[in-house]
Structures are given as structure tokens and as C-alpha cells.
């Protein structure tokens, strides 16, 4: 009883290939390549300024990459942006609607822009979220605004949802309601989802695959379960208090405190323990499992100490 991904034979749902985006001389996106399969939920995570918003703007065709190719649902984001926007349900971080419009006017306006609008879905969702037709956007609370954005995104039956940090600043109940709304439509329709967020809890709940963006580059991109299984923290004792020179590959981050040496290793295999134990001045190698949050923190710390 599995959900069938909507593969239409034209390649991955999202495909970025060697994408660079420079603002002046600084790269917001620095050689990004990634692909997202139909029907999967991709979590894009990274600190502020990592390039998440820029990437999403390129996916929606609002920004042109400086170089590289961006393809969404088989369309090139440069030349076929309008087709992409027809098929993608986009939920922004801050609502974009004109503040003076009433809910029914926003709905009417958006309805006229999309060729595949479903009035029943829209009505049903507006009722479910108790969004009043006559209230102006500026009178709605944050939680209601994000729900309205979701209604607008889903009512035109998109093949893909792109959620750009939509839950920032929401109270826990509103977040849950929003995510449940997304889950419901994914359960029913099986859309591909790209979720850009700060929250690792949301990523774990919602995403199959996760991509970690830092400094415009993808540091990690894999299935969450694989990532958890293949990234471990290793604890060892250093006999002379200083770590060895040549570290095995895959060391993301390390820390020395007294004689205790902690390192986080990606692509972990049983041989890794062996290799570390074989290094000069290293004893008592111990392996610890870590959760997603610690994993990402270590990635960031590792990047910061390298740069």
C-alpha cells in the first residue's frame, strides 16, 4: 500500500546542475548540484545566509543563475518559469498577498491566474481553517496567514510544493496545523515537496532526504536514515594530548579537551574504527551514535573551523 511517485519519465522533479549565483562578487550559491525525485520530500536545511532563499528563487524562475542549469518538473527555470509556477504550490516565509485585499479577493485573484484551480478543495480548506471571506489580509493573524498561503498553494492541484520557511514565528499549535495540512495533501496526492526550514524536528518528521546547505554549497545530501547510520561520533584517548596529523577521510569535525578526543565522522564504516585506532597516539576508541541536531551542529562547526 505504498504511495506511487508521480514519475512522468522526464527525469527528477528538481534538478540543479553546477549552479552558481553571484551578487556582485560574493557567491550566494557556489556550485550547487542536487536532484530531488518525484514523490519524495526533500528537506533543505542550513543557517541564515546559506543560500536557501536564493536557491528557491531560482527554482521558481525569479532569479537567473549566473551559471549552471535549473530544471523543475522537466521545465527549464529560465525559459519556462510560468509553466513551473502553474505546477508548483509555493508557500513563502512572510505572506506576499496585498494587505488591503480581502480573503475572497485574494482567492479570486489567484484563481484567475491558475488554469487548474479546484473550487471544492479551496472552499473545503477555507472552511476547515475557518478563514473568513470578508476579512482583509492585514487583519489576519500570522497563523491564519500561513494557512491561507497553504490554501492558495494547494487549491490549484500542484505537482510540487515548495515551502520556504513558512513556519518561522508561528506558535507550536499553528505549526502543527500547518504541517498536518501539508501531510494530508501529500498523503492524498503524493506531491514532491521541498521544505526549507531551520527546524530539524520538522525535517525528521516530514522529509525523506535532507540537504544541508552552507555557504552556498551542499555539505550533505542523503536519505535521513542513511545519514544517521553513516555519521557517528568517535571518542578516543590521546596518549600525548595532541591529535594525529593525518586524519582518515570523512572527518567532519574534531575537538580536543585534555586527553579526550572527539570527532564526528561521515561515511562511517567498521573499518573507520580500525583506522582511527591504528593512528599514532590514539587509544580506547569508542563509537557513539548521534542525533540529527548534533550531526548538523558538528557539520557547521567543522565548516567554520576550516574557513
Amino acid at each position: 500500500m505504498s504511495l506511487l511517485p508521480q514519475s512522468n519519465g522526464t527525469g527528477p522533479a528538481i534538478e540543479l546542475d553546477g549552479v552558481f549565483k553571484l551578487f556582485g562578487n560574493s557567491p550566494a550559491v557556489d556550485g550547487l548540484s542536487l536532484s530531488v525525485e518525484h514523490g519524495s520530500t526533500f528537506g533543505l536545511i542550513g543557517p541564515n545566509g546559506a543560500g536557501k532563499s536564493t536557491t528557491i528563487k531560482m527554482l521558481m524562475g525569479l532569479l537567473a543563475p549566473t551559471s549552471g542549469s535549473v530544471r523543475v518538473l522537466g521545465h527549464d527555470a529560465g525559459t519556462e518559469a510560468t509553466q513551473i509556477r502553474q505546477k508548483v504550490g509555493y508557500v513563502p516565509e512572510l505572506h506576499l498577498m496585498d494587505r488591503w485585499m480581502r480573503v475572497k479577493e485574494v482567492v479570486g485573484f489567484c484563481r484567475s491566474a491558475f488554469s487548474t484551480w479546484n473550487d471544492d478543495t479551496c472552499r473545503e480548506m477555507l472552511d476547515r481553517y475557518e478563514l473568513p471571506d470578508d476579512k482583509k489580509v492585514k487583519q489576519l493573524s500570522k497563523g491564519m496567514l500561513v494557512k491561507l498561503s497553504l490554501v492558495l498553494a494547494i487549491s490549484h492541484e500542484p505537482e510540487m510544493l515548495i515551502l520556504d520557511e513558512p513556519m518561522s514565528g508561528l506558535d507550536p499549535l499553528a505549526r502543527e496545523e500547518f504541517l498536518d495540512g501539508v501531510l494530508q495533501t501529500v498523503c492524498d496526492k503524493g506531491q514532491t515537496v521541498l521544505l526549507s526550514t531551520h527546524s530539524l524536528g520538522d525535517i525528521q518528521r516530514m522529509a525523506d532526504t535532507v540537504g544541508f546547505l552552507y555557504g552556498g554549497r551542499l555539505l550533505a545530501h542523503s536519505n535521513i536514515d542513511d545519514l544517521l547510520a553513516s555519521t557517528k561520533r568517535v571518542r578516543a584517548t590521546l596518549t600525548n594530548g595532541s591529535p594525529p596529523e593525518n586524519l582518515p577521510t570523512g572527518v567532519v569535525w574534531q575537538q580536543v579537551e585534555g586527553r579526550e578526543w572527539l570527532l564526528t565522522v561521515a561515511d562511517f564504516t567498521p573499518e573507520t574504527v580500525q583506522k582511527i585506532g591504528d593512528l599514532q597516539g590514539v587509544e580506547n576508541v569508542d563509537v557513539i551514535d548521534i542525533g540529527l541536531e548534533d550531526l548538523f551542529k558538528d557539520f557547521v562547526k567543522g565548516q567554520r573551523s576550516n574557513s
Binding site: 525569479l62 510560468t82 506576499l96
Partner: peptide, 13 residues
């Protein structure tokens, strides 16, 4: 007033 962004994300050429 940022309302240009509202239009920008819609499939309006």
C-alpha cells in the same frame, strides 16, 4: 511595498 513579489510568484507572465 513588496506587492510586486505577490505577482512574481504567480504564473502570470
Amino acid at each position: 511595498d513588496r506587492s510586486a513579489e505577490f505577482i512574481a510568484y504567480l504564473p502570470l507572465s
